[in-house]
C-alpha cells in the first residue's frame, strides 16, 4: 500500500521536475533543438503516466498492444503526410503552402 503510494508520488515529483525543466529550457536558445527537447520531455512525461498511473506495467500484453496502436497509427499519419511536406520543395510542383507570401484576409 504505502509502497504503491510512494511510487505514485515519486513519479509525481519527477513529472513536476520535468515540467520545470521543459519550461525553463524553452527560454534557452537551442535553435532547432528546442522543439526536439520539448517533445522528448513530453514523451518521457507521457510514458511515466502511462506506465505507472495507468498501470501498463501490470497489464497484459494485449492491453500494451492496444495502448501502443493508437500512437503507432498517429505516427503513420504524421510520417506519410510529412513525407509529402518535407519533399515538396524538391519537386517540380509549386508548394501550395508557400504560394502566397503573406496571407491576406478575404
Amino acid at each position: 500500500m504505502s509502497a504503491v503510494l510512494r511510487t505514485i508520488w515519486g513519479c509525481w515529483a519527477a513529472l513536476v521536475v520535468l515540467l520545470a525543466t521543459t519550461t525553463g529550457l524553452a527560454f534557452v536558445p537551442l535553435g532547432r533543438w528546442n522543439i526536439v527537447v520539448a517533445l522528448a520531455i513530453a514523451t518521457a512525461k507521457a510514458l511515466i503516466v502511462v506506465i505507472v498511473f495507468m498501470e501498463l506495467r501490470r497489464s497484459s500484453g494485449l492491453v500494451r498492444v492496444f495502448a501502443g496502436a493508437g500512437f503507432l497509427w498517429l505516427l503513420i499519419l504524421l510520417g506519410l503526410t510529412g513525407a509529402d511536406y518535407s519533399s515538396r520543395h524538391e519537386s517540380y510542383i509549386p508548394n501550395t503552402l508557400q504560394l502566397h507570401e503573406t496571407p491576406v484576409k478575404r
Binding site: 506519410l80 513525407a83 509529402d84 511536406y85 518535407s86 519533399s87 515538396r88 524538391e90 519537386s91 517540380y92 510542383i93 509549386p94 501550395t96
Partner: peptide
C-alpha cells in the same frame, strides 16, 4: 493534386 513527386512514388 500537387503532392510531392517523392511522396507519390512512395504511395
Amino acid at each position: 493534386a500537387g503532392q510531392s513527386l517523392y511522396a507519390s512514388l512512395i504511395f
